[in-house]
């Protein structure tokens, strides 16, 4: 655990200082979507990999967090920590409300129930024009401030560091929780549900906790999305997003939160950077990435190991 913590801190420091120093001017902004999509992917990784509950609906709590942040920011609440707490709460509350119908299901049924929830939320976001701005989306969102009374974060590097810090904290908390007894209970429920029940564990309760945690992570991601692009629309939170974060989590090695984040970065770099050299064929390159990953990295990105020194 201590080694993990140190590694995590080192990685965060590298991401905070080395990456901006090395990257060409203007590339930092291109990595921002990876932070917004990375947290829902981490949630999927926990839910699907650890708790065994596949989901194609994380776009829903992502949407709730994003719209909550956008509306609060437009109403004048531009302080980062307050937005993050509000978005995480909104995502968690959504998960609490929908959880009872989700955690009863398993396998493909769970996949389709969450898909339906995601589609219903995205549709509602497109039609509830007075609140969400409809399909044209919500614009005119003021930039975030680091703290009460701070100056707005508009500079690319400052914004990037904000995203890194939030992502690292959320990831750290996730890893800590997974290392706690709850994490073991989740893995137990996934592998030996009947035995866990027989031993008196409330499997449904554990799954609900995981679902709420994933909802909070997705809500946080929604807040980062709004911070990063000063805009949100139903297209940002629909099936495309839900499937992308699931695939990114699988790409990263399902069950590994850091892998999910790495998978998201890989997807974003291929989609936004590599595909820019061949306009119109982004889907082809993304498809090739997925196919290649299935065969070359059977256990995901996390299966790559450093040689023993």
């Amino acid at each position: 655990m201590r080694a993990q913590l140190l590694t995590g801190l080192a990685l965060t420091a590298l991401a905070l200082f080395a990456v901006p120093a090395v990257l060409a001017d203007g590339t930092l902004a291109m990595l921002a979507p990876a932070a917004a999509l990375g947290l829902p992917a981490v949630g999927v990784s926990v839910l699907t990999g650890r708790a065994g509950l596949p989901t194609l609906g994380q776009g829903a709590p992502f949407a709730v967090g994003a719209y909550a942040t956008a509306l609060l920011a437009r109403a004048g609440l531009t302080t980062g920590p307050a937005q993050l707490v509000a978005a995480a709460l909104a995502g968690a509350l959504f998960a609490l409300a929908t959880g009872p119908v989700v955690v009863r299901a398993r396998g493909a049924t769970a996949l389709m129930i969450t898909l339906a929830l995601g589609e219903l939320v995205a549709t509602a976001a497109g039609r509830w024009t007075s609140v969400t701005g409809g399909t044209d989306g919500l614009a005119g969102i003021p930039p975030v401030q680091l703290w009460w009374g701070g100056s707005p974060l508009t500079d690319d590097t400052a914004l990037y560091r904000y995203l890194v810090v939030v992502t690292a904290l959320a990831l750290g908390v996730t890893v800590l929780v997974l290392g706690s007894p709850l994490g073991l209970l989740l893995a137990g429920s996934r592998d030996h549900e009947e035995r866990m029940r027989a031993a008196g564990h409330r499997v449904g309760g554990h799954l609900l906790a995981a679902y709420i945690g994933a909802g909070a992570l997705a809500g946080l991601g929604g807040a980062l999305l709004v911070t990063e692009q000063s805009y949100v629309s139903p297209a940002d939170v629909g099936f495309g997003t839900s499937s992308l974060v699931l695939l990114a989590a699988v790409l990263g090695g399902i069950g590994s939160p850091l892998g999910a984040l790495a998978g998201t970065v890989l997807v974003v770099v291929v989609r936004d950077q590599l595909a820019a050299h061949w306009p119109g064929h982004g889907p082809l390159l993304l498809g090739a990435l997925f196919v290649a990953a299935v065969y070359l990295l059977p256990d995901g990105i996390t299966s790559i190991r450093l040689r023993r020194p």
């Binding site: 590694t7 990685l11 991401a15 990456v19 990263g252 850091l258 996390t302």
Partner: peptide
């Protein structure tokens, strides 16, 4: 080691 490798890969990709 896996965590380190993944993290490094993440950075290299970035």
């Amino acid at each position: 080691r896996r965590v380190r490798a993944t993290g490094l890969l993440l950075l290299v990709t970035a």
